[in-house]
Design a protein around this nucleic acid. Structure first.
Length: 572
RNA sequence: CGGGGUGUAGCGCAGUCUGGUAGCGCAUCGGUUUUGGGAACCGAGGGCCGGAGGUUCGAAUCCUCUCACCCCGACCA
């Protein structure tokens, strides 16, 4: 591609709206432009990278035996009503009507559409297992779009759906996808981690997320220092070392604590560490209201709590509601003498002599103990793990927390959709059987941003070879120097003919401008061609990756660039 | 959804408090000189100041409404 004939609007300054490095660099290098909140146009440079990711995904999906299809982005409400998700999905689902007043949505995902397709087309167990995928534009009306393409509302996603006759076969399909995903992210040059994830409201047995580790990540990932356990914080479980229960030593006492409300204030007031306190949270689900107890230094994991309580519409009660229900402000509620079902976090099992609210404004109880002061409640894992917690899978490890960008998610869905939408095939015995489903997503556009988060320096992007929009940038210092221009053209042609993608900067710009842009754009290799080099009989080949450069004889340059690039492509 | 902020040339901003014919830097176009790490000079083009309504002789500026975008929060007892 010739830069003189390409729309590549680079920016010198960081746009004010960009917070994270990938967003800044995508704007500055002219890859994308914003059209509205969470909605972006892809310019030539960005699109080239997007297509690279897409092709890697496509190749690996095909290799894993999945079949590509292409489904509508716009979906009729009826399908979503069949599975109940028209009601469930909430405001993230972009809904609209056609001229006839019929309800539609812009698909945020395609379980309904694919299930509708296969229930009409698949009849026999002999057609299973089957796995269909597409690469499609999705729309999710995010609460808060941010970070450019990273959490956009409109985005490009690869979604795949497998159909199997039985669990064993589903397990196998899942495993195939899991391996394909590892291959995909590896080829994208990403350092990633597969972690156990919560299955959410969708249910099902297994789920893994693939995370690119990066500081800007929106998810917290727990991983073990000793074994290969890794899980999303939403799901991560800490080990429960067999601490011998401390024997109660204190009598329960009511203490006046004027204006002492938060755990920190309580711990400060009594001069103890927060783990000696117990925090009480009131929550509500369709099943009723509950009090949850946590150690003062722990955070509630709402997903775990919601899963445990097993009622829909889990939510924390508002302070005013708590006041109305108990007559006490949230800072002073506690588990002693309260007429609500209590569930306590496992970490409180062996607690003794702890401090909690007294159910009376501005009073707390100290020296509280199970049995003597209140009955032992039901215990469950309700909290977020913390760095340093012991691992639940092995004996020696401790957990650490990192930030991750979710780029892929694999799910075993079971029969949720096939059952509610009445998809069956005839099994070997001639009976109707509901197949089991798996679904597998990859954030194609997000990968572009994630790759930049992991591959950049102060001057711009440093593309991994498989995602690079161009393999080699030919930097022609002055297009008016005939000999240099001719050499640049020759190399350009030579690279193209050998299947490489070169970028020729043939603009009539100053050298500094060209170098700055080249750094921004981030082609792995660069060759600088100018009159001086020609005179010396050698030109400079530079590596964007390590900044190294070497002089190469004029007649050897093309060959060297080709070999170097092919070497990189093979290594990766 | 709550709170905060910003909308003025392609980009970054000043001007708004205190009303009086809209500016700066970069970018763009023409010219001259330059040309191995974001050039210099001369000249030029480009704005219904987010939109609507109002106050006023007069509104980017004051008032009302509205739209868009950005940031923070929506994990706390």
């Amino acid at each position: 591609m010739r830069l003189s004939k390409t729309l590549l609007p680079t920016l010198k300054e960081d746009p004010v709206e960009a917070q994270i490095v990938s967003h800044k660099l995508m704007l500055r290098s002219g890859m994308i432009r914003q059209l509205g909140a969470g909605i972006y146009s892809w310019l030539p440079l960005g699109l080239r990278v997007l297509r690279k990711v897409e092709n890697i995904v496509r190749q690996e999906m095909d290799r894993a035996g999945a079949q590509e299809v292409f489904m509508p982005a716009v979906q009729p409400a009826e399908l979503w009503q069949e599975t109940g998700r028209w009601q469930q999905y909430g405001t993230e689902l972009l809904r609209f009507r056609d001229r006839g007043g019929r309800d539609f949505c812009f698909g945020p995902t395609h379980e309904e559409v694919i299930t509708d397709l296969v229930r009409n087309e698949l009849r026999s167990y002999k057609q299973l297992p089957a796995n269909f995928y597409q690469i499609q534009t999705k729309f999710r009306d995010e609460v808060r779009p941010r970070f450019g393409i990273m959490r956009g509302r409109e985005f490009l996603m690869k979604d795949a759906y497998s159909f199997d006759l039985d669990q064993e076969s589903l397990d196998n399909s899942y495993e195939l996808m899991f391996k394909a995903y590892q291959q995909i992210f590896k080829r994208c040059g990403l350092s990633f981690s597969a972690v156990e994830a919560d299955t959410g409201a969708i249910g099902g047995s297994d789920s893994h997320e693939f995370h690119v580790l990066a500081e800007s990540g929106e998810d917290a990932i727990a991983s073990c220092s000793n074994c290969d356990y890794a899980a999303n914080l939403e799901k991560a479980v800490a080990g429960w070392p067999d601490v011998v229960a401390c024997r109660p030593t204190a009598q329960m006492q009511k203490v006046a604590t004027p204006n002492i409300k938060t755990i920190d204030e309580v711990a400060g007031f009594f001069a103890v560490t927060p783990d000696k306190t117990c925090k009480s949270l009131l929550v509500e689900t369709d099943e009723g209201r509950f009090m949850l107890l946590l150690r003062g230094d722990h955070e509630l994991n709402e997903i775990k709590a919601a899963n445990f309580l097993d009622g829909d519409n889990f939510r924390l009660m508002e302070p005013e509601e708590v006041k109305k229900l108990t007559g006490v402000g949230v800072g002073s509620i506690g588990p002693v003498n309260i007429s609500l079902p209590i569930i306590a976090d496992l970490s409180l099992k062996n607690s003794s002599d702890f401090i909690c609210g007294a159910n009376e404004d501005d009073f707390h109880l100290t020296g509280v103990n199970w049995e003597s002061d209140l009955p032992r409640p039901e215990f469950a894992d309700l909290r977020n793990v913390q760095a340093g917690d012991s691992c639940s899978r092995c004996d020696f490890g401790t957990l650490r927390l990192d930030r991750g960008i979710e780029v892929g998610h694999v799910f075993k869905l079971g029969d949720k959709y096939t059952k509610s939408m009445g998809m069956t095939v005839l099994n070997q015995g001639g009976r109707e059987q509901t197949p089991l489903m798996g679904c597998y997503g990859i954030g194609v556009s997000r990968i572009v941003a994630a790759a930049i988060e992991q591959n950049h320096d102060d001057n711009g992007i440093v593309w991994p070879i498989f995602l690079a929009p161009f393999h080699v940038e030919i930097l022609l210092i002055n297009p008016k120097e005939a000999a240099a221009a001719q050499l640049a053209e020759e190399i350009y042609k030579q690279l193209q003919e050998s299947g490489l993608e070169p970028l020729l900067d043939d603009r009539n710009e100053r050298l500094g401008v060209k170098f700055k842009d080249a750094d921004l754009i981030g082609a792995p290799l660069r060759v600088v061609i100018g009159g001086r080099g020609i005179k010396e009989g050698a030109v400079e080949v530079q590596s964007r990756v390590d900044g190294s450069s070497e002089k190469v004889a004029l007649d050897k340059v093309g060959e060297l660039l080709i070999n170097r690039t092919k070497g990189l492509l093979q290594e990766s």
